[in-house]
């Protein structure tokens, strides 16, 4: 076995894992917040996430064709794209809740889940339809920005592109803002109260419907931000590419303990790291018999194992009595 190689790629794999982990954490927040409030898996969240990526690519492509993408300062462009992605994804999440979930709030449990699967499929093809008409293409590539692709070469085997640092910084900032909103503001208190007990919260004068919309707005906005960062980091997107990251982010949310916000962050990081290491080392350790293509199986196996042996996740489920 080639031990120097195994050790040599370690820092690079670690970095990839951290980036992937933050991506999962941002998406997982949408699942976990909605689950905390409604005890319902928002299956369409993966499409709300990828809509953010499409908003981003549309803005960047428009700026490019206007010829100003390289003259504007890149932090400003990135900030604008992030905010736009968050706004549209958040608005979409609220709309979806209003149309497809709210009428079903008192129905048996499987009914809203099936509706959510419907929304997920509908949105995938809706994105495809819109992009096919608008651009006559639905596999889109993020325009490259030179400053973002600059790489700091630390050693011969390790280099860190600026965009990765930006992704990590943006994700950290987002998670911090969310933490403040949920734990330090009146709105956050209201969200936690609704998650705890809807009836009691509404007796205390909290407008439960508004808080649920707000939860979808925040979760959707986080998903949209993750979408933009996903596009910046990995480049190629299509209407269906949100699905697998969404599923993994859900796994991350379960891993951390669904309904638990710090848990989603931890779960995202753990899953991202595990996946990055599985993808890079599986092939080396089995002498090429099994390669990176098994990383999805790896993630799903983790999901199944957690649900069987520790259904409350690493940090414990905040929602009462279900698994």
């Amino acid at each position: 076995m080639d031990y120097p190689l195994l050790l040599g790629i370690f820092p690079q794999v670690l970095l990839d894992g951290i980036i992937l982990g933050f991506m999962y954490a941002l998406i997982a927040l949408g699942y976990t917040m909605v689950y905390g409030v409604l005890e319902f898996i928002n299956f369409a969240h993966s499409e709300i996430f990828i809509v953010g990526a499409f908003v981003g690519v549309e803005i960047l492509l428009s700026l490019r064709s206007a010829g100003v993408l390289d003259t504007l300062p890149w932090p400003l462009v990135l900030l604008f794209v992030l905010v736009a992605g968050m706004a549209i994804s958040g608005a979409l999440a609220v709309t979806v809740e209003r149309i497809a979930y709210r009428p079903l709030r008192t129905a048996p449990r499987l009914i809203p889940l099936i509706s959510a699967i419907g929304v997920s499929f509908f949105l995938q093809d809706l994105i495809r339809l819109v992009e096919s008409i608008w651009r006559n293409a639905f596999n889109l590539v993020y325009p490259t920005m030179d400053q973002l692709n600059y790489r700091f070469e630390l050693t011969e085997t390790i280099d860190v592109p600026v965009k990765s640092l930006v992704v990590i910084a943006a994700a950290l900032a987002m998670l911090w803002v969310l933490h403040v909103i949920v734990n330090r503001t009146t709105i956050g208190t209201a969200i936690r109260a609704v998650a705890e007990d809807q009836a009691a919260a509404s007796l205390m004068g909290i407008d439960v419907n508004r808080i649920i919309s707000l939860t979808f707005l925040i979760g959707g906005a986080m998903g949209g931000a993750a979408g933009v960062l996903f596009g910046v980091q990995y480049g190629l997107i299509n209407p269906y590419s949100g699905f697998i990251p969404g599923l993994k982010a859900f796994t991350a949310a379960v891993l951390g303990g669904i309904g638990n916000i710090p848990g989603a962050m931890l779960g995202g990081l753990v899953l991202g790291l595990l996946e990055a290491f599985a993808a890079s080392y599986l092939s080396l350790l089995t002498a090429g018999a099994f390669g990176a293509e098994y990383k999805d199986i790896f993630a799903f196996s983790i999901l199944i194992l957690i649900l069987i042996f520790r259904p409350k996740g690493l940090l414990g489920e905040v929602v009462r009595g279900r698994a």
Partner: peptide
């Protein structure tokens, strides 16, 4: 041992 939506995801 799983119910409802968890079963669906698994």
């Amino acid at each position: 041992r799983l119910h409802g939506d968890y079963l669906a995801i698994v």
